[in-house]
Each structure stands twice: as structure tokens, then as C-alpha cells.
Nucleic acid binder design. Structure first.
Lengths: 203, 203
DNA sequence: TCGAAGTTCCAGAAATTACTGGAACATGGA
DNA sequence: TCCATGTTCCAGTAATTTCTGGAACTTCGA
């Protein structure tokens, strides 16, 4: 099997982008190839198409599987394992977000928490801790939000995205309706000490 | 000047995270150090504190400046240039998002557009192009949204984040109010051919 | 149980990326 | 203008990451 110029251009670009992102170039290219391929491909075909060694492809596929970004399937009449990407692009985004959170964000949050708990060794440490807390709270806020939003079905998500900044108009609306919203505005970066997270909209 | 254990732990972790992200380890550490430092630091102090060569620090600072993540300032009575991070953490997020878009997303979108425009060289290319289009449209949708949301002031943004998935309740509300919403639901990944982006809420 | 086909692992080679020291260059005060 | 101080650039070196080929292992049908 040969690589069409179109697919070649895409895999090359994707590999390049991947390497800026902590994903290595070959892994990126393998993913790109599977992404645009209509049928699932076995490892040796991938190696042949992209010109990588068999073991390199094997490593790459293992990595992609650990990210849950490629699926393994068996085709009738063929003993080899075939690989393909997730079909639903929104699902890809969700999986990516989850894995990144698990691998990078969560460990970072726990390091930050530990450091914030330590007794400061001086004025400098005290300042550092306030900065760390700001970072921690911000990351946590964004993560909670994204965890939450990820659960939405695709239609809701699309509608929300299309709304963009105009969602603020909805917020205003909510704040003006006393039966639904309390009309208060959170101060920036408040610590949400009561843990309520504006539950009042839940009906 | 000496590095407190707290700051050291933070810089090390941050450097590690950075290197998973395409930012090199030393650049990450420099940023982390500045982030938790109350006063701006000159390059030679940074080099001494972190134990890097003077030129490495210089390179790193240049890189950070090109990302608009550190600011240069002159202190009275000191000829040296001093560096510090942005004070407002939300601003940091905004700047980061903008730069990443400029450097990575926009080029990717334009590659995708080019490839989608090409005349397909066969059935396989035709399928590949539909996949590329899906990816392109998704990225563009998310980018438009984030561009939009970034313009919100911090209070609105915080409120929105706290709301999380419960924002859907607002969407439902909007869809139920005939004077405000049209009550229609976009099909998933529709191409928004009229370019209206639900303008009706703009009052 | 044997052999063919397929997969995984690993040690070393190759390529890439990061880092250093020093030299060239710039700037501002005397 | 000259000197002291500070900054940038660059070529070579070091460290890290990626990639390869082959050997060991696994699986399945005959």
C-alpha cells in the first residue's frame, strides 16, 4: 500500500505538531495515518506505509492504546491485530482531556497541595505559597468545569460552543430572575468555601 | 541568594511538566522561579539560583518573552534588566491561550484547509478529506468559542466556570423562552452555513 | 507437539535537543 | 571617548530521546 500525497502531508504535519506537544513524532504520524484511514490497519502495514521499523510501530501503538486513542480489533479471516482510531471526534476530545488530566493535571494539583500545606520557611515562602494557591485554585476550577462539561451530550455541547461569549447574556438573565438565580456575583477567585457551586439551578 | 526547599520542589516539578509539553526543562524552571518570586530578578541571579549557565538563562528568558509570559523592567539604581511574570493569573491564561493559538492552532487549521481543498486522488482520499474536515470544523468551533470567552471579564468568567455543566439548565431555559431563543437545537457538527452563531441573544 | 506467523522486548546506534563557555557586541556613566 | 558592566550569539559538547534489528516469546492450526 502506498501513501497518497494528501495523507502524507497530513501525517507529516501531525507528527510535527505532536512533537511540539510531548508526543513523539512517529507516534503522531501513526495516529494521523489511522485517523484518516477508513479501515483498521495491522502493525506491519503501518510500518511499511510510514517506513518505520516494526518495533517502533509496535511501541507507538502501545503508547496510543495506553492513551485509549486507538482501538484494537480482529478481522475475520486474519490473525493479525488491526488498529483504528475512535470514530466520533467528540469522543476523541473527551478521552484526550481525561487522560491528560489523569497524567498531568492531577499529579500537579497534588504537588501544589503538598507545597501549600508546608510550613513556610520565611517571608519569601509565604509569598510563594499564595502564588501556588492561586495556581492551584485556578487549575481546580477549570478542571471541575471541564469534567462537568464533558458529560454533556454532543448536541448541548455544540450549542454551548456556538453561543460563545454570548453565554454571558444568559448569565445576566439568570441573575435578573430572582426565582432562579440569587443575583449575586462571585468575587474573582473566591475560594468557594461553602462548596455549593451554585447548585440552585439544579432542578 | 538561596533556593528554599519549597521553591526548589516547585521549580523542579514545573520544569518536569514543561518538558512534557514542548517547553524545555530549564525554561520551565526559570518561569516557575519568577512566578513565585515577589520581586523581579535579573538574569545573573536566576543563573546563580538555578545553577544554569548565564547564556542558557538568557536564551530561556528570550523564549519566555517571546511568549509574552515574562515582563522586563528596570529598577532605579540598577542597570540590569529585571524579569517578572504577569501578576494576574487570569491574564496568564489568556496570554498562553493566545500564543498557543497563534503558533500551533492557526497553522494547523490552514494546513487542514489546504488539504481539504485539494482534489482527491481516489476513494481513500475522499474519506480522508471528510475526516480532515471534521477535525477542522471541531478545532475552529472550539477556537471561536475560546476566543470569545477570553474576552469576558474575570468575574463573568469565574461565574461561568463555577456553573459548570449546569449551564445546560440555562440553555434549556433559553430554548423554552420563545421571545429570546428560537427553541431549535443545532444538529451535532452542523456546518453553521449561515454564519449567524445564534446572534439573537445579543441585545 | 511442531512449525509458521505474529508480537514484544531490549541493547546499542542514530538523531535530536539542550547546555556551556567564551568571544563579540552594546550601553551608559565618568 | 573609554572603560566597566551587562547582553547576545555561536560553535562545540553533553544529555536525552528516538529508532533499529534481532532475539525471545506467544499463539494457533495441522
Amino acid at each position: 500500500m502506498q501513501l497518497s500525497p494528501l495523507t502524507e502531508a497530513f501525517t507529516l504535519h501531525f507528527g510535527e505538531m505532536g512533537s511540539r506537544w510531548g508526543i513523539n513524532r512517529t507516534v503522531g504520524q501513526i495516529y494521523a495515518l489511522l485517523y484518516v484511514s477508513e479501515r483498521a490497519l495491522p502493525a506491519d502495514e503501518i510500518a511499511e506505509i510510514l517506513g518505520f521499523s516494526r518495533s517502533n510501530v509496535s511501541l507507538g501503538l502501545k503508547e496510543l492504546q495506553s492513551w485509549r486513542l486507538v482501538r484494537l480489533q480482529h478481522l475475520p479471516g486474519d490473525r493479525r491485530e488491526h488498529f483504528s482510531t475512535l470514530g466520533d471526534i467528540w469522543q476523541i476530545v473527551r478521552v484526550l482531556a481525561e487522560e491528560r488530566r489523569r497524567r498531568e493535571i492531577d499529579p500537579t494539583l497534588s504537588v501544589l497541595r503538598e507545597l501549600i500545606m508546608e510550613t513556610p520557611g520565611g517571608e519569601a515562602d509565604r509569598y510563594a505559597q499564595t502564588r501556588l494557591r492561586e495556581m492551584h485554585d485556578l487549575i481546580e476550577l477549570i478542571m471541575r468545569w471541564s469534567e462537568d462539561v464533558q458529560k454533556l451530550d454532543t448536541a448541548d455541547l455544540t450549542q454551548l460552543l456556538k453561543l460563545g461569549g454570548r453565554v454571558v447574556a444568559l448569565l445576566e438573565l439568570k441573575n435578573r430572575l430572582p426565582l432562579i438565580g440569587r443575583g449575586r456575583r462571585e468575587p474573582a477567585m473566591s475560594h468557594d468555601s461553602d462548596g455549593s457551586h451554585d447548585q440552585e439551578l439544579e432542578t
